[in-house]
Design a protein around this nucleic acid. Sequence first.
DNA 1: AGCGTAGTGGAGCGTTCGCTCTACTACATC
DNA 2: GATGTAGTAGAGCGAACGCTCCACTACGCT
Lengths: 202, 202
Amino acid sequence: MPRPRVHSPDAVLDAAEDLLVEHGRAQLTIRALAERSGASNGSVYHAFGSLETVVAAAWLRRARSFLTLQRAAVDEALAAGDVRRAVQAAADAPARLADDDLRAARLLVSLQRDDLLTGAVAPAVAQDLRALDATLATTLRDLAHAVWDRGDAAAVDGVTACVVRLPAALLFGEIRAGRVRAHTRARLTAAVGAVLDCGPPS
Amino acid sequence: MPRPRVHSPDAVLDAAEDLLVEHGRAQLTIRALAERSGASNGSVYHAFGSLETVVAAAWLRRARSFLTLQRAAVDEALAAGDVRRAVQAAADAPARLADDDLRAARLLVSLQRDDLLTGAVAPAVAQDLRALDATLATTLRDLAHAVWDRGDAAAVDGVTACVVRLPAALLFGEIRAGRVRAHTRARLTAAVGAVLDCGPPS
DNA sequence: AGCGTAGTGGAGCGTTCGCTCTACTACATC
DNA sequence: GATGTAGTAGAGCGAACGCTCCACTACGCT
């Protein structure tokens, strides 16, 4: 049939990851990506369709394994009946990922999720992104039910503060720097506990 | 003497603020700024020297009033002998600013401090920026001394987590959206308390 | 009236960007 | 060997960017 691939899409994503982690989104240009990956401009567009799609696909690849890891930690704590620890484990998941695979953690931290769906992203990848959003939303809703026996927006917001916003504040900087200190994780767990004790907004 | 100004620098900064808050840094181009402010390209460069300088000056103008407000809140609590409340008040300062002057708060939140000193910033403004950094550093050191009777890097880091990182996580999103809920401020205060109880890293 | 000075306006330079386009290539099938 | 197909290579298009440059202007001073 057709000519075989010389450059695997994964190799292109690897190169994109390097550039994102080392120099940030602004430095990830199609020219830099072509040079780093060895693939030509044309090959990248043939495979992905747009640069935004490359970025989204790179993020997606790592986000999937993160959410898997996070979900496992949550389920383990829930199975043990420790609801509070389930939320704390979910919040701590980025630190765990940094231990397991620092490169993946640094990639996830180098992009803002909200900036990924820009309209130039290929439909298939955009759909996967939304599916992943739904996965996280499910985890958050499950936690809200476990903690407060409620699944409304206010309850989910409380859990989101614990599981998304607090880790972003306390962990992301250290992940970027390459090392998460044990003391920082302890702080996060304490902060999560305190926010949980506030309860959900009336 | 010379020709009088038609466009005050402050009016240019106002226009820059509008664009930053409404559309973000990427949309603040010299052309958009010229159109919005009424000043010509040439006038802006005559007054500021570079676009980065405009951005830095706009941020500086608001950061100054923020730090003044924050310092006042800290001093009040310290004078009352309530060290814990001093840290909590410092953390809560962005929410207070949002109440007083939402526009100013939204501007401060729309930029990353670290991205401001890019080398293209005019020396005078760059120096003011560094002076402001020093002001914040003093506040953080004072708080560290008050809380733990220590001024070393680890102690300052503990206070920084409370006063910089936690507010960024919990408040900034709501400031961007235009309203900080009372419940969110309560959460922040609780989180700060919990992190303080962790103590500084060994 | 002539001059120096600070400010104004806008054409346009040089660069970089994402992306398109087309000629070309390596394979499977017939 | 001809043909169809998917992948490759890279020149270059059009647009946007920050910034420069220079002719011009409104003022106080002499």
